[in-house]
Computed example of a mutant assay.
Amino acid sequence: MTAEDHGATAPAPTEPTVLDEVTGMLREVLDEDEFTDAEITMTTRFHDDLDMESIDLVTLSTALRAHYGDTVNFAAFIADRGLEEIIALTVGDLVRHVLASLAAAPTAEAARA
């Protein structure tokens, strides 16, 4: 049974938890030996540090959707950004977006009301 089955709410995710989840997704997306032991932090840049290309961002978007559902929309997150802003994106920017998206999502209880 889930927390929703008992009427309890799940604890809000924390920055370290989301960072761990995003780091796992990045390692899967990149699937490169050189990143197996590399430390991914909040200041790690997608382009400069991880050499991510646009196809990698699409794959990451798919992984985020699979993990968080429609609550976290990565495509919308980067859609309003210019090229320079996208190049400068950090893992921390994504983690903060995930946390904000999850916090803004209606709870299961509110959705049933």
Rank of each mutant, 00 (worst) to 15 (best):
M1H: 07
M1Y: 07
M1L: 07
T2I: 02
A3D: 12
A3H: 11
D5G: 03
D5T: 08
G7L: 00
T9F: 15
T9K: 14
T9V: 14
A10K: 06
P11W: 02
P11Q: 09
A12D: 09
P13R: 04
P13S: 06
P16A: 02
T17N: 08
V18D: 00
V18K: 00
L19I: 01
V22G: 00
M25Q: 04
L26V: 03
R27A: 01
D31Y: 14
D33Q: 12
D37C: 14
D37S: 15
T41H: 02
M42Q: 11
T43P: 06
T43G: 07
R45D: 05
F46K: 02
F46Q: 05
D49V: 00
D49H: 05
M52S: 05
M52W: 04
S54A: 09
I55S: 14
D56V: 11
L57Q: 10
V58I: 13
S61M: 01
T62F: 10
A66E: 15
Y68T: 05
G69L: 01
D70I: 03
T71K: 02
T71P: 01
N73Q: 03
F74Y: 04
A75C: 09
A75F: 03
F77Y: 02
I78F: 07
R81V: 04
R81H: 03
G82W: 05
L83A: 15
E85I: 10
E85G: 01
I86R: 05
A88I: 05
T90N: 05
G92N: 04
G92E: 04
V95M: 07
V95T: 02
V95R: 09
H97S: 10
A100Q: 15
A100C: 11
S101R: 05
A103W: 08
A105N: 11
P106A: 14
P106Q: 15
A108Y: 09
E109D: 11
A110R: 13
A111K: 11
A113I: 13
A113V: 11
A113P: 14
